[in-house]
């Protein structure tokens, strides 16, 4: 597997190398008669090339925070700056553009298009970015090469193993050279051996200069990160560096 993963440095407009600046974010859901306070005031600063794990039991607000970080949802109140841009008050389509350019998603269930080849799956974010077809192919193949799937370009998801599928998904997350890679339980559907391989891949990406945020409830996965943020009842319970080996 190639170890050198070159990343174009994307310069933040404010603050030297701050990618994400979150201040006093809250999120309330109205579910029928009751209002759920999923996040009760979160402050978080994430810098370039950090490797962060977000942990917490179910109901802690972990998923809600991940949706905020991924610009899939907007906070009820508070400030959220992504590379200096205020994303807290953006419209749907503006958020879509931010997700397309700045965020690479890796899902627990891979979420590949079932009838498309690896190459086509990896090309998808580039289609939405308006990249011409020839360049799309080139960059998608390059991303698949980085995750070690150069020989699986024209395979469809059902012809790939779970680990290979997740590698395709990671290639798809990488292909737009995003500011952060946001992984939600990336090993949740994999056996432990394959899970370790995927975590090694994240390790390599981090060493190559990528900023990685992993949302997980497994201590073993969180141990790979350099920093762990623990949530409880919609607040940050702890936030400290790990004793990384």
């Amino acid at each position: 597997m190639p170890n050198e993963i070159a990343m174009e440095p994307r310069l933040a407009r404010s603050g030297a190398d701050v990618v994400i600046r979150i201040e006093g974010i809250t999120k309330r859901y109205v579910m029928g008669a009751t209002t759920v306070h999923a996040l009760k005031g979160i402050d978080l600063l994430i810098r370039r090339n950090e490797y962060l794990a977000v942990m917490g039991p179910s109901g802690s607000g972990k998923s809600t925070l991940m949706n905020m970080l991924g610009c899939l949802d907007t906070p009820t109140s508070g400030r959220y700056e992504f590379n200096g841009q205020d994303v807290a008050n953006m419209e749907d389509d503006e958020l879509a553009a931010i997700r397309n350019r700045e965020i690479g998603f890796v899902f627990q269930t891979f979420n590949l298009l079932p009838r498309s080849t690896s190459l086509q799956n990896v090309e998808l974010p580039l289609v939405y970015a308006g990249v011409p077809a020839s360049e799309r192919r080139h960059r998608a193949a390059e991303a698949l090469f980085r995750v070690g799937l150069m020989d699986r370009l024209h395979h469809k998801p059902n012809e790939l193993s779970g680990g290979q599928r997740q590698r395709v998904a990671i290639a798809r997350a990488l292909v737009n050279r995003p500011s952060i890679i946001l992984a939600d339980e990336p090993t949740g559907n994999l056996d432990s051996q394959t899970g370790r391989e995927i975590m090694t891949l994240f390790e390599n990406l981090h060493e190559g200069g990528n900023t990685i945020i992993v949302v997980t409830h497994e201590e073993a996965i969180a141990r790979h990160a350099r920093r762990v943020v623990r949530l409880r009842d919609g607040k940050i319970e702890s936030d400290h560096a790990t004793a990384h080996l």
């Binding site: 998603f105 979420n111 298009l113 970015a129």
Partner: peptide, 16 residues
């Protein structure tokens, strides 16, 4: 539905 969610996460706009 999930495919639509995935596409939106990857940057598909409403129009798309």
């Amino acid at each position: 539905t999930r495919e639509i969610g995935t596409r939106k996460a990857l940057g598909a706009r409403r129009r798309t």
